[in-house]
Nucleic acid binder design. Structure first.
Lengths: 260, 260
DNA sequence: TCAAAAGTGTTAGCCATACACCCATGC
DNA sequence: GCATGGGTGTATGGCTAACACTTTTGA
């Protein structure tokens, strides 16, 4: 608020240089990861409060909204070049609450005045990201004391309308599943059909037939079968697959029809 | 800019009372109508310029973003309670151009300074609406001299990225067609199956089989057959239908799968 | 009686679903 | 060899797609 403009990546939600950002606008990312057959969301634990929030940030005056979302994603997870999709705007008048802002400011040595940067109405643009769980380095920001994964079925209490944003993101993701390939940035470069199926099953919240899932996926022509076999368990070794990047992104752009 | 705040509906894009609006944010509506077997878009002819623009406006500090879009829709078309769907945010840094703003201001007796209200970067939230063509009363705003329908295949030159916004809206509409019913606010309260089919055909840009379309639509259970027959032409009279509003909106919320 | 458009019926083929059966592996 | 999980095959039912046939109406 008093300091000059710091142009590092990690200036995201810093209470400095508010003149560098668009007023009243923010982005919030719902970052999905996949671990132990469960979908997880990356959340931040609020400083000085008992609740959690989505990784979010403001939009610099010289960057696009998409770029702001990318920057936030990279700052909190260490990752870039992952699937990041804008899905909805949250623009209710009273979605942010002064009381929450106030307590969040307390620890940060910020004078809280009416009409202040943090005390204005915020419209936020929701994005969801699909990331490879293992590769993420959870990193809290200035407003938070920790950054951790949560199971979708066991979300903590969250500030503002952030829980609703998570739910909407899941709805959007489920929709997209019907006409877009999923898995590229969620899985390691090589994976088994079983783990891919597990992703679909957790997102859709229901079991799919193993045989039919196999056939369908292969028919899309986005998978490359590695003849190399995995080993170590007391059963037949599964094939390893990787995505044919070119075909994958062609389908991502063009869309298709999934039976479920 | 000098006058006080006028709280009529028709203050939308007025250059007065800029303090009443959220800075740097706007909504733009792609209003689709259906006429003569063609999809039309409602556009505004810019004052002092040779190009056209989408009906848009700013967001009042005491209204939600959705409400702002509704207000703009009502001001330009006279309609409310129609299908209005947010579909994307347009947030590139250079999407609005100073030169365009400048010429638009010229006729309005507005001093144009750097850092001025109209000379800032704008992020806009795109909505599309489906309206009953016949019911619309096209009404220009302060920045425009006329308001008229355009065929989607014959759009005029448009300011900023507005043509791209129209195209994106059409893409979104086409997507939604696959899992949501369409037609309610596009058609009169009573209509024929042929006109409903025509809507689907123009949105999808391809012919559909009459017989199969019939069967599919009826199987959704959102249509009520009026035994009253239409008359006047040299052929068999078609049935009239109307939507079962309750079922229609249930499906709109839940979604379903369309074969095409 | 003919043309045009609407209503209805029918068939073939595809595809999702369900399930069965074989293969590989470690204990 | 047996349990476990992976790979592959197949039958059934349902639905789409295509098209044929009938009905209604005004000219």
């Amino acid at each position: 608020m008093k300091k000059g403009i710091a142009h590092t990546t990690e200036e995201a939600i810093q209470p400095v240089a508010t003149e560098a950002y668009l007023p009243g606008l923010s982005v919030d990312n719902v970052i999905f990861g996949f671990h132990a057959d469960q979908l997880k969301v990356l959340l931040l634990e609020c400083r000085n409060r008992k609740d959690w929030m989505l990784p979010g940030g403001y939009i610099r005056k010289d960057e696009s909204v998409d770029d702001a979302a990318k920057r936030v994603l990279q700052d909190r997870s260490g990752l870039k070049n992952v699937y990041l999709q804008q899905f909805s705007v949250f623009g209710e008048t009273r979605r942010t609450k002064e009381s929450v802002m106030r307590s969040a400011m307390k620890s940060l040595d910020i004078t809280f005045k009416d009409g202040d940067w943090f005390n204005q109405r915020y419209v936020t643009i929701g994005y969801y990201a699909l990331v490879e769980f293992e590769k993420v380095k959870p990193t809290p920001d200035t407003f938070s004391v920790s950054c951790a994964w949560f199971d979708l079925n066991a979300l903590p209490t969250m500030i503002f309308d952030h829980k609703e944003i998570v739910e909407q993101a899941l709805v959007a993701l489920r929709q997209h599943l019907h006409y877009k390939p999923i898995g590229y940035s969620l899985l390691p470069s090589t994976f088994t059909m079983k783990s891919l199926q597990a992703i679909y099953e957790t997102i859709l919240q229901r079991k799919l037939d193993r045989s039919n899932f196999n056939r369908k996926m292969l028919s899309l022509g986005i998978l490359e079968k590695k003849e190399k076999l995995f080993t170590g368990a007391a059963h037949k070794a599964p094939y390893q697959y990787s995505f044919n990047k070119k075909e994958y992104f062609r389908l991502l752009k063009e869309g298709f029809g999934m039976p479920f």
